[in-house]
Structure formats: C-alpha cells, structure tokens
Design a protein around this nucleic acid. Structure first.
Lengths: 343, 343
DNA sequence: TTGTAGGCGTTATCAC
DNA sequence: GTGATAACGCCTACAA
C-alpha cells in the first residue's frame, strides 16, 4: 500500500525534524551528534515508514556503491556456491550487495567482467581466481580498489585473504592413514600454479616427515587439473610404476573420483587394496561406493570471512593485511581402512 | 594517471558545448536531437577523456540501473548454479548485470532481499521461488517492475516464464519403464504447491493413462519436500502398503536418493527388485551405485531463456506474455532394468 | 543540538 | 539545435 517510495524527508517530516537531523540520527557514526530522544523518534519513524536509504543517491555523495564484485571461475564448481553464500550473507548484513561474475579462467572474459564491475563503481573485489600473476589485481591496486582473495593465496602476502589451511588438511589425511597402519602412501598432487595444489603437497610432505616416513620419488604424481580424468590418469600412472603403496591422498575429491575409476580399471578395490582420501568434502560423496573419506573445508565460513575482510578493507583501506587461515576437518567414511597385509 | 574522475561537464567543456547537449549527444536515443557535427565532437571528447557515465547519478535520475535482481531459494541446491550462469551469461551480452539473492524460502528474508534490490533500482526480477501466492510478485506488478519466472509457473499465465515441461519429463520416465516391461509403477510426488511437483504428477498420470494402466490409490505417495529424507519416508510407506510395484518414478533426484536408502533399509535391491527413475539429472548421480536413471533438464538454457524474456520485458513492458517450455530428456543409467518376474 | 544551503553527476523540461 | 535550470535522494560544512 505504500505505493510511493519513502525518502529521508518523509521520515524527517514524520518525526518533526529537518532532514539533516534525520540523516544524522540514522547514521550510527553521527548519531551522537543528536539528542537521544530525537534520534529515537527518527528511528521509530524510519521503522514504521519502512524507510530504506537509496543507495544510488548515497553513492553519488559518498563515492561508495555499497556493492562488491565477486570473481569466481565457475559457479558450477560445487566449491563455490557455499563460498558465494557466505559472502552474500555477510555483505547483506551491512547493506552491501554482491555482483557475481564467472570468468571460466578465461583471461578475456575475466577482463570483461572486471570492467563491467569497475564501471559500476564496485567498492572492491573478492577474487577466487588468483593465479600467481594477475594483471587485473595490479590494476585494482593502482586504482586503490580493495581486493580480497578467497580460497587462494599468493606467495607474498600482498592481499588480504581467507582460505583453508591446506597444509593442515593434507597432514590430517596422512595422519589418519598412518594411524590405520599405512606406511607407503601416494599423493596425487593438484596443479602447482594454484595455492591449493601447492599447500596440499607441502602438507603431504610434512605429514610424512612427521611420521619419519620417506617420500620417495614415485609416490607423488602431478595432475594438470583438478579433474576426474586427471585423477584417473595419475593413479594409473602411479600404479604402473609398481604398486608399492597402500593408500592415496588425492588433491581433491574429483581427483579421488578419478582414483576410484583407476582402481576399478585395474581390478583393485577400495579400501581393501588401496585406501583413498579426498579433499573438499563435496556434496553427495557420502553417496558414493564406497563413501569417500575426505577433508571438509568450511566453505561458507571462508566466504563469510572474506566478506568481513572486505568490509574492513573498505572502511580502513590502509588497515592491516590479514591472511585468515581456517582449519579443515577430517571426515572418515568408507574409503579408508587398515592395509590388507603387513606393511 | 587520470587521478580525478571525468564527468559529463568535463566532456562538455572540452567539446565546447553545454552539458545538456553533451548528455544528448552521448545518448543514442536522443542523439538525433543534436547537430551531427557537434555530436561527433562530443563523442570524440568523451573518447579521449575516457569518460564513463556514473551509473549512480544516472540511476538516481532515470530509475534504471541496467541491473536485474535474481531471487533463488538457495544457491547450494545444485539446480541453481547452471540456471544462474545461463541468466548471467545472457544478461552480460546486453550490458546488464545480475544481483543475486538467496531467500531460503523464508518470507522475511525474501522481503529483505527484494527490498535491497528494489532500492538499487533493479530493472526487473527473475524469480525462481514462486509459490502459488506471492505478495512480492503483486508488489512488483504494482510498481510496474517486470517479473519473469524461472523453473516455476503459476497457474494463470500472468507472468512470462521459462521452465521445463515437467509433465513431458514424467511421461518419458513412465514410457521408459513401460517399455522395459513394468506395469505397476509407483510415484513419489513432490510438494503440490509448486508447479514442478504438480506437473510431474500430472505427467505420471498421463503416462500411465496413455498405456492404459490404472493409477491405483496406493501407488502415489506425497512428499512434503524435495529431500532425501522425505523420499525415504515415502518409499518406506509405499512399501508398507504391500510391495505391489516394480518401479518408482521419483519427483526429483533427492527423492530418488531417499528411495535408494529405503530399498537398502528393507533389504531390497535396485534395479533388481525395484527400478528407480530420478528427475533433474544432478551432478554426480552417475557416480552412485547404481548410477541413477534420470530426466535431464536443460538448466542453463532455462536460465538463458528467462534472461531473454526479461530483456524483452524491459524494452517492451507491455509486450506479449510468453511461457517458454523447454523439453527434457531421458538419461538411462543403471537404476532401471526389466522387472524380475512376470508382471 | 538543530537547521540552512549547496552539491554529488546526470537527465528532463523548459525557454531561447 | 542548444542552453539554462531544476530536480533525483542523500550528506555535510557551516551557521544559528
């Protein structure tokens, strides 16, 4: 029934004050400049009128758009929906909104999306696509646009970031297998040009070292992508070198699915012949045969954390650059068991 | 290196005209009101100065934002990522951008998201959350904001919509089972207050009728939600009535997963004892045991189609109201087989 | 503590 | 065909 939109003046009129007073009362940072009782009246009026400040008008004045650009490779990757939700839910609490863009890891597309957002004056970029060298990030920095990385880290800590402790995750996986009695453990490592691939490999090595186990050359195989096909190729390759391992830590769940396929192809069974641990705890992997043991990553929380970092950044562009590292969690299912024979 | 932002006045000054003239020259629709030569000069100036109109200012005046709000229940539902990508990819080609909001089917949250978008002057709403009665839609209509439904239809054709032919999908499933030799087929029907639930039930009935098979009372069980738990509950219930069916058409894949669980619980096997057909062809259901036969829905295309309808709507608010119905496709996998004994 | 006035960048509506 | 002026809704010096 309101029909027309409610403006600040309407609120002011209804509260019997001037619009500037209303403005002050409604802004938490300037509320102290106004009589407590008056402020209360304004807030009350705003509430009953369901006043919503117009971001366009505000933006015109403050040079803020209350909008954040989110760059992800591909929303269809099940990793990203929960991250995006975490981002969105958090931004919403502060009246911000997210513009989402899929880049498909395609440079031209990435640039197009970036420009589209920049021209809409986004207040910052949350980026999930960071490779080691990234011209877009440089440009954002030049234009003093805040950038927060999510789920990826660069080697130098030049950007705030929210991600999972990949190394710890891989260590959890290795420790679990060792506790089951495994001694010879293989690793299908993800691409080494992204931080997740590197971190998990390092964790694997650290985990083995912590148990005093050598990581021999043949135990690590490098995948060219986080795909099922690559997982299959790599494990087949590793098996071809002579199956001297009883367990595999896969760089992520898709690689683990590839391991399932490779084992089936070679007539081996999981977990009887080879235990498999995934990474990410994707939806529905508990429905696989066998249900996949995996490292659960708090994706939603990572997204939320990234959004918090962005909000910080927007209000304090020169603030501390933080790298939030969230702890992963081991989820034991049916794909891991003690090794068959004596090690 | 520009440092300061370039405004319309800068362009005007540089071209030696008044800002209103510059504005006209830069707007393709009003360019004819201005001397061709002058216009050329303005455009040239704009180009060299790298002028970018401020969307906030423009939006404040025109109430247009080149932005479309997308309301979905929950991005984590694997249905939606491809739909959203279809929407986004299509909008992008016309310089539009999507604001995404998750409602969790919660009315308060829905309203908040809606308001946030409205206040950002979105040019329209693409809505995936339509139940039969929907105050938000009424409000949008009152404010003359275009609304397009995606993946849902209302009974009256009051809104443009893009969705799949649910009835045809269920008919495909039934026909497939009949061809395998099944005669007594059960249906786990989804909630009847959403169009997908109703459409699939109708398709089931039509498919049975087309084969001259009766749909007896006990063969249809109604789920209270599209969840695995409900699927399990319903099939257990159906089995308890006396297992006189050899196949089940589930209202969607999650319900089908529940059927798997129910069969396991009762010591029955799929497809030997009971064939199961899902609906949606979610990612990774080909990895289940057995891989699930399902009805594939062209989600990306549905999203793209919805975006096209929205763009039409924005340029012609009074245009024809179209309901696009895309055809689904049967994907046969391991969960369906001929019935064991003679019917 | 509150009000006044002016402006953010753009476009619509008048005059000329 | 072009220029002047006012407004969109909000914020913020500055004055009272």
């Amino acid at each position: 029934m309101p029909g027309r939109r409610v403006t600040l003046r309407d609120v002011a009129r209804s509260a019997g004050v001037h619009s500037s007073t209303a403005s002050r009362a409604l802004n938490a940072e300037r509320r102290h400049l106004v009589n407590g009782e008056t402020a209360e009246r304004v807030l009350e009026a705003a509430r009953t009128l369901e006043f919503r400040p117009d971001p366009a008008a505000r933006s015109l004045k403050t040079r803020r758009s209350y909008t954040v650009g989110v760059l992800i490779p591909d929303l269809n990757n099940p990793l990203f929906p929960p991250i995006v939700r975490g981002i969105e839910d958090t931004l919403t609490t502060q009246g911000f909104v997210a513009l989402m863009g899929n880049t498909d890891n395609d440079e031209a597309r990435e640039r197009r999306v970036f420009e589209g957002m920049r021209s809409r004056h986004v207040d910052g970029f949350i980026v999930a696509t960071a490779r080691q060298h990234h011209p877009l990030l440089d440009q954002a920095v030049r234009e003093e646009l805040p950038v927060v990385l999510v789920n990826r880290i660069l080697d130098d800590d030049s950007f705030p970031s929210a991600s999972v402790d990949d190394s710890m995750g891989a260590q959890l996986a290795v420790a679990h297998l060792i506790q089951l009695g495994h001694r010879r453990i293989a690793h299908i490592a993800g691409p080494q040009d992204v931080s997740t691939g590197r971190g998990r490999l390092r964790g694997f090595e650290l985990g083995m070292a912590a148990a005093g186990l050598p990581v021999e050359r043949g135990l690590v195989t490098f995948a060219n992508g986080f795909t099922r096909a690559e997982g299959q190729r790599c494990l087949v390759e590793a098996l071809a070198r002579g199956r001297d391992f009883t367990a595999v830590v896969a760089g992520n769940d898709l690689l683990a699915l590839g391991c399932y396929a490779a084992l089936e192809e070679k007539g081996l069974s999981c977990p009887e012949d080879v235990s498999v641990v995934g990474f990410n705890d994707m939806p529905f992997i508990d429905q696989l045969r066998p249900p996949l043991t995996s490292i659960r990553i708090p994706h939603y929380e990572i997204g939320a954390e990234a959004a918090f970092l962005m909000l910080d950044r927007i209000s304090q562009p020169r603030g501390l650059v933080q790298a939030k590292l969230l702890p992963p969690e081991l989820v034991v299912r049916g794909s891991t068991a003690p090794p068959r024979g004596p090690a």
